[in-house]
Design a protein around this nucleic acid. Structure first.
Lengths: 218, 218
DNA sequence: CAAATTCCGTAGCGGTCGCTACAGAAAAGA
DNA sequence: TCTTTTCTGTAGCGACCGCTACGGAATTTG
């Protein structure tokens, strides 16, 4: 006997003509999930208790566990929702920017606005929601995500150094890590009360480190 | 009757000739406190339980409470110890640097070494040990400390802009916040596994934003 | 010695944690 | 209507949380 995997019926994949069998869910799953995103974003994984979640999501604990598995699965799904919405600007900036410099400039400028948007918690969920975690897997998952972002910046810098858009002796690792450090520091300062304008000033200053095209370092 | 304040006999202020009355403490207070610093540094305030503390400190819970008050008081004392030892480099760099630029350069370069020292947990306790805290007072205390550091950098920049060491139109707030953001981002990246050399590269890159003496911005 | 004072180890307090057993309610299928 | 399926609310599980009452141990004072 192989172990049974609990059937997940969370995301209906069948057409709209087929109705599920039993009593229908009395709440909107996406709306409840969005509330969980906000709670985790503001207070982090550990400091957000299941009773906190059931309160803000407006459902009972059994409904939460039936719809989302357990607290950790709910958090992972909340991280995915965040990455596809509030946090998607960073991936877009890095993909769509015409050059590494333009991509990072857009990344930092949009971060200044996003991190201080009064419509949701300050800063970046990926940076802050799983620090000091008693569940190391949760902490590691977001750490990997942060390090992947550093690598993404580095790849763009390295590509521009290869094409001549940046000087060939550019230190791609240091330039990328600097951009990432400014990004992460901006998130921290947003949490500490910095304004959008202050963070835009940081972003502008940070862009001064980029070598100009046609200028070689040293 | 006004409320009695519990007599604290933790730090003996009398001369060495006077012996305390009852049974002497069977552990060294400073050594135990140092262990608590390490535990809070690595796992943060909330994720470090009292039983974690009693284990690493090698004492029972009643001894901990008798010697340090409660968990929060112990944490506050640990933060003070940290600020006077591992974290003291930042204050020294900002005070002793001959110019704002030299002070920040030393700050960042020493941070690269300190944040990655394998002899203790990575990164900065003040930045990481009280995030996502269910006790907002604890979180706020370290937030104030971080914002005070930003202000300290800003003061040094402003002073140099006044003397002409930096251009008079220098944006002191942005320059200081950028330095602080890099500092905080370096701490985050140290926690995420960055090496000393990588962080030194970040520090070097970050210093490129500073206007040279005799050069005016715009 | 005895008395007084202070510390330590055991053991456990009330509270919250993540999670779930259970029974009733609400829907579809027969 | 009756059965089947699924969801919901109550109520509570064992584990851990921060913290402490209590009695015995260790030390100074008289």
């Amino acid at each position: 006997m192989h172990s049974m995997v609990k059937q997940q019926k969370d995301q209906p994949q069948v057409g709209p003509g087929v109705k599920p069998r039993g009593r229908p869910r009395s709440f909107d799953r996406a709306t409840a999930l969005e509330k969980a995103v906000m709670a985790f974003w503001e207070h982090g994984y550990e400091a957000t208790s299941v009773s906190d979640l059931t309160r803000v999501m407006g459902i009972g604990a059994p409904s939460l566990y039936a719809a989302f598995g357990d607290k950790r699965s709910l958090f992972e799904e909340a991280v995915r929702v965040y990455g596809g919405t509030y946090g998607s600007f960073s991936g877009r900036a890095l993909e769509e920017g015409p050059t590494a410099r333009a991509a990072v400039e857009r990344l930092l400028r949009e971060a200044a606005a996003e991190f201080t948007d009064p419509g949701h918690p300050y800063g970046c969920l990926v940076i802050h929601a799983a620090t000091n975690c008693t569940t190391p897997e949760v902490e590691d998952a977001l750490r990997r995500q942060r390090n992947a972002n550093v690598s993404a910046i580095e790849s763009r810098v390295r590509a521009d150094a290869a094409t001549g858009e940046l000087p060939p002796d550019t230190d791609a690792v240091a330039l990328a890590r600097h951009a990432a450090a400014v990004f992460q520091g901006m998130s921290q300062q947003a949490r500490d009360g910095a304004s959008r304008e202050e963070l835009e000033g940081v972003a502008e200053i940070a862009m001064a480190v980029w070598p100009r095209a046609g200028t070689h370092a040293g």
